[in-house]
Amino acid sequence: MAKISNFRIGIFVLSALVLLAGMLYYLGLSDCFSRKAAVSTFFPESVQGLAVGAQVKYKGAQVGSVEKIVILPARKIIQVDMSVELDSFRNVDGSALFRDDEDFYRFLQKEIREGLRCRLEYAGITGLRFLDLDYFAASGEMPVKPEFAVKGFLLPSVPSALRDVVKSLNVSLERISRIQFEEISNNLVRNLDDLNKILASEDVRRTISHLSGMAVSMDQTAAVFTRVVTEDRLRVILDDLENSLSELRTLAAVVRNEAEKSDFSGTAASVRQAADAFSGLLREETPEIKAAVDAWIRTLDMFRELADNLNRDPASLIRGAK
């Protein structure tokens, strides 16, 4: 048998044991020596991704871990028990903030009034979740106490951010689902079909060709008008118009004088008679008058169109339409 060194064996065993003790301490046995307070909360929503051992954070800093997750089917809620390390909370001078659990619970009670709540949060893309203790509710708003007794301190929870998003999404989706896309689509297809039919009908085609004809006539008329109405002639017309207006003004003054002197009762009766006669005429000769009025309206329309053209392009009066 080869010689063995008892000293080396001793060193081997001793160093392994020291290493083992160190690893056990750093891997969590140190937790056994830390002061912890038990806190519970309830979630009406799913706690998918939350597991025993998950982190508990206070404003993002880890202060404890989830100890137990219990399902309470009777109330359709999940109870989550957690332990919070009291030594995580310190005074400004570095001393421990809480002497014992009760001290910590009093602190929580005060903070709940300030809006402290427990919320499920996602820890990255892995789907794992942790509990975040933060100020979510409005200051002074107190939660409704559950109707059943809770062992340990109860910290109320608020729905997770994702839950709100999911809720809104669900409402939107529900509303969208109410829209009858199929019916709308069918109607649209039907209307388009009708439109196609109308456009393909003989009347529309004829109307379009008439419109084209009218446009050509209008162009010709405008060209004639441009040729006839020169600037000199327009000035002469405007001068004549001015003269006529001054004569009209003179005539109006004379008429006013005469009217002031005249007896209007007889005149009114005469006018009524004339109006009656005119009405009778209208009644008897309606088709002819209607035709004349229509012709007059068309002419007016054409003039309005002409005026619009002139308004847009006054130079066309001189150089003719393009």
């Binding site: 080869a2 063995i4 080396r8 064996i9 060193i11 081997f12």
Partner: peptide, 13 residues
Amino acid sequence: MLYYLALCGQKSV
């Protein structure tokens, strides 16, 4: 036992 502890343990570290 100590011999094998040395052989399998200490000398394998």
